[in-house]
């Protein structure tokens, strides 16, 4: 089937893919990219593993079973960010800190709620894309058995 080399390369590639995804996510506010692209990039890394190693191996190797959890958690985070400002008596989706206020920096990462929003998007997209492809893959193995 697939050569040993591809198998090794795919495993090796996964880590940098995730790193790239993280970078795209973190830098989204100042340059190209956002949570969505980050999520898809990370998902593509996982999918590559899937394609090469097959569903069973990939399931063993990666915590993809948790994809739905990620998706639901991501959506939940985004929702919480969206609606939490309402609890504070502000219009929905009012990010903190407000315009003009200082932003706490953690390295290059800015600590603003918009980032949390984007993290939610990332988690959801990652979880959903992996989940969709995994559903298709599982449907195949279930249909086969």
């Amino acid at each position: 089937m697939t050569s040993l080399l591809t198998q090794v390369v795919v495993r090796l590639l996964l880590a940098p893919t995730i790193v790239i995804a993280a970078a795209v996510l973190a830098k989204g506010y100042s340059s190209v990219g956002d949570g969505f692209s980050a999520g898809v990039i990370a998902a593509l890394g996982v999918i590559a593993v899937y394609l090469v190693l097959g569903a069973e191996q990939a399931d063993r190797l990666l915590p993809v079973r948790l994809a739905p959890v990620g998706a639901i958690a991501g959506l939940l985070i985004t929702l919480v960010v969206t609606f939490s400002s309402v609890v504070r008596g502000e219009p929905l989706l009012t990010h903190a800190p407000p315009p003009g206020a200082d932003v706490i920096h953690l390295g290059t990462l800015e600590l603003i709620t918009a980032v949390a929003f984007d993290v939610g998007v990332f988690l959801l997209v990652f979880g959903a894309v992996v989940g969709i492809l995994r559903t298709v893959a599982l449907a195949r193995s279930e249909a086969g058995s």
Binding site: I72, L75, L76, F83, V86
Partner: peptide, 20 residues
Amino acid sequence: MTLVLPLAIPWFAAVALAAL
């Protein structure tokens, strides 16, 4: 608040229900 609740309630509910 009154405006947002009709939207927020089903949205949170949907996410929670998806897990059950």
